[in-house]
C-alpha cells in the first residue's frame, strides 16, 4: 500500500469498502482496469475468482466438513458448518450461501461448489464468513439478486431427477423466501395448495408466483383473469374469491 500514491490508495480503500474484497483483490482489479474505479467494479464482479482467497485455507476448511468416506459435504458437515457460523440450518442465509456456491442440491456441497462458492464470496475462513453474514443477508433486499436466489431455490430444493418440486418442500421454501416479501396472502396460498392442489409444483408456477407476489396487490385489483398466469394461480384467485377473502371485481 505504501508504494502507491495518495489517489490510488484512496481508490483501493474505496474499492474495498464497496466490494468487501481483500486488498490484494482490489489492487488486482484496479490495476487491470487502469485505476478506473468503475472499470474495476466491472472486472471484479465479472470475474469473482479474482478475489482469490487462500486456496490452501479453503481446502482445509473443506476437509474439516467433508464426509469421512466421500468427497462431499453432506448433512453432518452442514450442521457442523452452521454450528460454527452460529446460524440455524433453517436460516435463509444458508440459502444465500448455497446460491453463491451454485449448489445443485439441498444439503450437499461438492468440493468444487464449496471452494468456488467461498472464493466468490471472498472469504477463506469461518470467521470471515461469519463476518460476511450480514452483507449476505442484505443481498436478499436486492431485487435482482432476490429473484435469482428465488429461482435458484427451485432447482436446489427439488429431489434429484424430478422435474417439479414436492409440495411440502415448496411450501417450506415459500414460507422462508416469501417472508422476505411480506406477502399477506402467503398463509392462504399454502392452505390452498394443501386443500385443493396437493401435487408437486412446476418450475413455471414457482417462477410466476414471485411475479404474482411482486405485481399483484393483495386485493387483486390489478389481476387480469385473461392473463397468462399459471393455472394454479388462477385457481388460487378463484379460491380467494370463493372464500370471500377478496372482493369480486365489478
Amino acid at each position: 500500500m505504501h508504494k502507491l500514491g495518495r489517489g490510488s490508495r484512496d481508490k483501493v480503500q474505496q474499492f474495498m469498502a464497496i466490494t468487501g474484497a481483500s486488498e490484494k483483490a482490489a489492487l488486482q482489479a484496479l490495476k487491470a482496469s487502469d485505476w478506473h474505479l468503475e472499470g474495476a467494479f466491472d472486472v471484479f464482479y465479472s470475474q469473482p475468482q479474482i478475489a482469490v482467497a487462500n486456496t490452501r485455507h479453503l481446502e482445509e476448511l473443506y476437509n474439516r466438513y467433508k464426509e469421512p468416506d466421500a468427497d462431499m459435504i453432506m448433512v453432518e458437515g452442514i450442521s457442523q458448518l452452521c454450528n460454527d457460523l452460529q446460524v440455524d440450518p433453517q436460516d435463509i442465509v444458508m440459502l444465500v450461501i448455497s446460491w453463491h456456491m451454485k449448489a445443485s442440491t439441498m444439503c450437499e456441497f461438492t468440493r468444487q461448489e464449496f471452494i468456488g462458492g467461498l472464493q466468490s464470496i471472498g472469504v477463506d475462513s469461518i470467521e470471515k464468513l461469519r463476518e460476511k453474514l450480514p452483507s449476505l443477508r442484505a443481498e436478499l433486499k436486492d431485487d435482482q439478486k432476490f429473484r435469482e436466489i428465488y429461482n435458484f431455490a427451485f432447482a436446489w430444493a427439488r429431489e434429484k431427477g424430478q422435474k417439479s418440486l414436492a409440495l411440502e418442500t415448496a411450501i417450506g421454501m415459500w414460507r422462508l423466501l416469501i417472508a422476505e416479501r411480506n406477502w399477506s396472502l402467503i398463509d392462504h396460498w399454502c392452505q390452498f395448495l394443501q386443500v385443493r392442489h396437493n401435487k408437486a409444483i412446476s418450475r413455471d408456477t414457482w417462477t410466476q408466483l414471485l411475479e404474482f407476489v411482486k405485481t399483484i396487490d393483495p386485493q387483486l385489483t390489478n389481476y387480469d383473469e385473461e392473463g397468462a398466469w399459471p393455472y394454479l394461480i388462477d385457481e388460487f384467485v378463484d379460491y380467494l374469491k370463493e372464500k370471500g377473502l377478496v372482493q369480486h371485481r365489478r
Binding site: 422435474k163 418450475r203 413455471d204 408456477t205 410466476q208 393455472y231 388462477d234
Partner: peptide, 24 residues
C-alpha cells in the same frame, strides 16, 4: 383453462418458455 394447462405442460416439457422480460 384446459389450454392454459396444456401451455404449462408444454413449458414443463421444454417445448415453450416464457419470455424473460414479459411473462405474458
Amino acid at each position: 383453462k384446459a389450454i392454459k394447462k396444456r401451455i404449462e405442460d408444454l413449458i414443463t416439457r421444454d417445448y415453450l418458455e416464457r419470455d424473460k422480460d414479459n411473462p405474458n
